[in-house]
């Protein structure tokens, strides 16, 4: 073991190696590590953000659902009310129509009775006239006795 120039050579080599490592190896590796650290941090932050967003969206969806349910209930209520109204209306209509029909039928009956009565009255007059003529055995002038006949008919 002799101490010689190897000592100096080793020192110089040491400095050169350290310089090379300092200049060319350490910075890019550290940059890569730093960049990855940043990336992971960003990713975690993004995940957190996404989770938060999802919670918000769920909340919003719940709100919308609740609102929709409310609206649907309202629509159903309104429809039921309307249906009831329609039923009532049609009941009213039907009743009114029935009454109207009843009135019309009554009027018709009345009219028919009247016309039958009129008819009957005319026929009775002619029968009475014919009867009287037969009784009198002579021609009764219808023209001269018309006034009399009509009076008679009105009395029947």
């Amino acid at each position: 073991m002799n101490i010689n120039m190897t000592l100096i050579g080793q020192s110089i080599t040491f400095f050169v190696f350290v310089w090379f490592c300092y200049r060319f190896i350490w910075p890019p590796l550290m940059n890569a590590l730093e960049a990855r650290k940043q990336k992971i941090a960003d990713g975690l932050a993004a995940a957190e953000h996404g989770k938060h967003e999802q919670e918000l969206a769920e909340e919003r969806a719940k709100d919308i659902l609740r609102e929709a349910k409310g609206q649907a209930g309202e629509i159903i209520n309104r429809a039921e009310k309307r249906a009831a109204e329609i039923v009532d209306e049609s009941k009213d209509d039907a009743r009114a129509e029935g009454e109207r029909l009843l009135v019309a039928a009554r009027a018709e009956i009345h009219q028919a009775v009247n016309s039958a009565r009129e008819d009957l009255r005319g026929k009775v007059v002619s029968i009475a006239v014919a009867g009287a003529g037969k009784v009198l055995e002579r021609e009764v002038d219808e023209a001269t006795h018309a006034e009399l006949m009509n009076k008679l008919a009105a009395e029947i």
Binding site: T13, F17, F20, F24, I25, P27, P28, L29, A32, R36
Partner: peptide, 19 residues
Amino acid sequence: LGALFLLLFRRVAKNATAA
């Protein structure tokens, strides 16, 4: 050996990615 170390690490450092 020092050069071996430097070359190996330099190669890695040059291609180092954050991926």
